[in-house]
Amino acid sequence: MDVKPLVVENLTIHYYTLEGIVKAVRNVSFSVEKGESVCLVGESGSGKSTIGLAIVGALPGNARIVSGRILVNGVDVLRLSQKELEKIRGREVSIIFQDPAASFNPLFTIGQILSDVIKYKLNVKDKNELRKLALSALRMVGLPDPERIYNSYPHELSGGMLQRAAIAVALSTKPSVLVADEPTTMLDVTLQAQILDLLQDLRRKLGLALVFITHNLGVAAAICDKILVIYAGSMVEYGPVDEVLTSPLHPYTKRLLECVPRSSARVGRLKYIPGSLPDLRKLPPGCVFAPRCSEVMEVCKSVEPRIVEVKPGHMVACHKYSR
């Protein structure tokens, strides 16, 4: 049997802050096949980026992975030493971020960063070989005039070009898993489509396992095979993208879908979900979504719902579907 490139099991992550322990991610599980893409969808602050950072082992210093496993090509990266982890990071898993302009050190050219990544990850010593690999990585992401980009500083390039360059850096080492943390949020719509196309294209060509993090359901619909809806650090629904988007089960997913503004239906006010995310330091007992849920029942306020498989491959954490 083929080993899955990425398996996340019961991942729980806490942030230790002066104001208390923030339970940012709780019991999140999902897996990604070769060439498959899974979307993590949720509001700002739902913990989706934290999961992405945990996968590449780049969590900030005050975060702790309390429990769970992250298997990259069958190896539990959480059990590795710092040194072994450094080997995998950027080599087997890599990441691109939301703000491409802030992802690049302003004092170094794209070429310097790109060739350093190739040099240290692929152990290429020869200067000409290094340059050749770097230029071919830039060519792979469809950047015109790679020579010029190679010698450019970040401030000399546009956001779209920088995001392509970031993809080139992340994929220059041929990783099997790529985490894309809201890679199109800062770009305008036409560029957004180009970058999504590029990612789709590269995913097929390289057989990448893609973890795509977004708050935009439209983007998720365009790029994903499976979708994982996260609310306040808990997974509420997980399933094939068509099913989740056309026949959502969880009340939160339903509300979220209603909130997507449609250009064709300009009637009435924009919809939103009343209330806001709960305080992750003082979680309410029971279902985290209960205070905002329109279909709330008595049991929701005291008992935390378990995630159950309602249809094959379609799971939901809601008391409506228990038993």
């Binding site: 990071r89 004092l107 170094f108 990544v117 240290y120």
Partner: peptide, 26 residues
């Protein structure tokens, strides 16, 4: 604490290099 330091580490550059070559110049 800048994002570019985080991304350099996340892209797998050794910590030593990120500090003494990149961050020191900044």
């Amino acid at each position: 604490s800048e994002l570019y330091t985080r991304s350099a580490l996340a892209w797998g550059l050794p910590r030593r290099l990120v500090i003494y070559k990149y961050a020191l110049k900044n």
